[in-house]
Design a protein around this nucleic acid. Sequence first.
DNA 1: CTGAAAGCGCTTACAG
DNA 2: CTGAAAGCGCTTACAG
Lengths: 345, 345
Amino acid sequence: MHAPDPARPASPTSRDRPAVTLREVAQRAGVSMITVSRAINTPQQVSERTRERVQEAVSALGYVPNLVAGGLRSARSHVVTALVPTLTGPLFGGMVQALTDALELRGFQVMVGQVGYAHSREDELLRAIVGRRPDGIVLTGVMHSPEGRRLLMASGIPVVETWDFTDTPIDMLVGLRHEALGAAVCEHLFAKGRRRLALLSGGDERAARRAQGFEAAAMRLGLRPPAMRLGKSPTTHADGRAGLMALLADMPDIDAVFCSSDMLALGVLTEARVRGIAVPQQLAVMGFGDIDFAETVSPALSTVRIDGTRMGQTAAQWIADRAEGKAVAQPVVDIGFSIVERGSS
Amino acid sequence: MHAPDPARPASPTSRDRPAVTLREVAQRAGVSMITVSRAINTPQQVSERTRERVQEAVSALGYVPNLVAGGLRSARSHVVTALVPTLTGPLFGGMVQALTDALELRGFQVMVGQVGYAHSREDELLRAIVGRRPDGIVLTGVMHSPEGRRLLMASGIPVVETWDFTDTPIDMLVGLRHEALGAAVCEHLFAKGRRRLALLSGGDERAARRAQGFEAAAMRLGLRPPAMRLGKSPTTHADGRAGLMALLADMPDIDAVFCSSDMLALGVLTEARVRGIAVPQQLAVMGFGDIDFAETVSPALSTVRIDGTRMGQTAAQWIADRAEGKAVAQPVVDIGFSIVERGSS
DNA sequence: CTGAAAGCGCTTACAG
DNA sequence: CTGAAAGCGCTTACAG
């Protein structure tokens, strides 16, 4: 299906003259280096005539300031690093977007790093990140590795943990209690008359705690133990299909399934349709995350929504405030969750 | 649904002692700074006894080398920046993952930046990125802005454009021809006996060129002009549902729809099912991207697959080679595409 | 409004 | 195997 193109060898040297520096701009403009720096960063401190001459030199030479050098001296990188388990999934995109937008307005650039759910490379990645001295670090989930906690605390860099809750945050925290969420979903299904519950869950820590909360609530309500199937994270549509099959093989009479992600829930919806199981009449299905198309599938997916935008905005404000030397009044916030009832339950 | 937590004011000063530097490690170990540097970066150049003393000091003080300072002096940042239109969509995740994995093995860290499809902030973001002097820049799509092209070419930084094709790349390019792809899909549908084609497309440039190729092929084949509906990017499931409704309102007898993304195609599948239109009997549906669950929806989605992993690996190798001073033999590659035939067509 | 000197924390280049 | 000096490209802190 493809025809390779004729070779066009790229010479590494042809584009490799050294970058233009402040010194060259200063020479061309006939002023000192510090004056060029001011003309660029704090133009109101410089006379109009000087400003114009500097601007001419900047344009003529194509000068792009080396922000790394500036950051080294001023001890302000204007970079904030966000770590997410996966870039592919839909869950964290909204938070990162909000974080990026809010920090950009305050002069920061957000760089995203991918950790994976496995955490094997986490400490190593953390050293690479701390070594670049960002002005803030946003973590997805709480940090458990003692080594990682020590590293971050010792670094002095403002840290925001998100998407989870703990009484011992490294620094700041905006998140939610997943056990409470699981329990609330269970109570919701109970209130809707469901009695024979099932649970389909990915293997990450937050999903596991949602599962615990769900199960505990079922016991409190006097229900029989939920049929459970635990898999791995990230979860897929295929896992959802296979999961419903397995649950039905174990307990054919289940009347509700809580899935640890919307993607799993969509797989369950597909499998139910293929098998002729009526949703929600025979089986209620609930997801987690409120993926953007949960509302437009058919039946529309009931789910639990987390305000990722607010999480991102909160983290942005905290980090920008700290970078400007302001204290954060309330650096631990539980943003909660909301159950979104749609056609599938 | 949520109860705010008791306030726990965070003092910005409590965590703000300055970071440990090489000098302090050197003093504690009783050696010079350069010896500490060697013990960390090229341990084979240092005696075992010295190495041990340095390691003791590093651990005791919790030293994390400042990579920014090192990068400034050595003119090697070991950072590669990738720019994607959106972090939320599924399309670019595989490429970024492959890029990250491959570059990590060669000692680089990948930072991802989000550009959006609008390109309004593109030049500004580019200056912020070039200003940090990464060892490579990976772009999604080809760069058109003359200002952006000039900036990147003048920077001397290795640049790889991806996901598209042009005869005038900035530097290196691994991508595909979207017009050819659109034409191939049209010919495929024709070969399957479809004659009354329709097209549902997002508004980004590559989608527009797939649409052009599709339409041109239809005319060459002597078909009637495809029913077309063009929207915006990123595309959504809801756009797919609304799009099929609109296409049917225009031309009720269409027998095939090519969608510019799998997400649109999934919306079309949902809308078709709700309306009782049999897929693929009455209507063939094809997507683009081979999203991870295209295979497990029902009917399974026919689509076009791009090898994002290979694109990411290729870009990684080129950039790492260039950073090591090697020339890249064939810096322009068309990786093509493959049509994946499943149940929906 | 402008500038000379010092310094951010490392690595390079040279020397022994 | 080890080190003293210089320098990467900026900004800070001081001075006028």
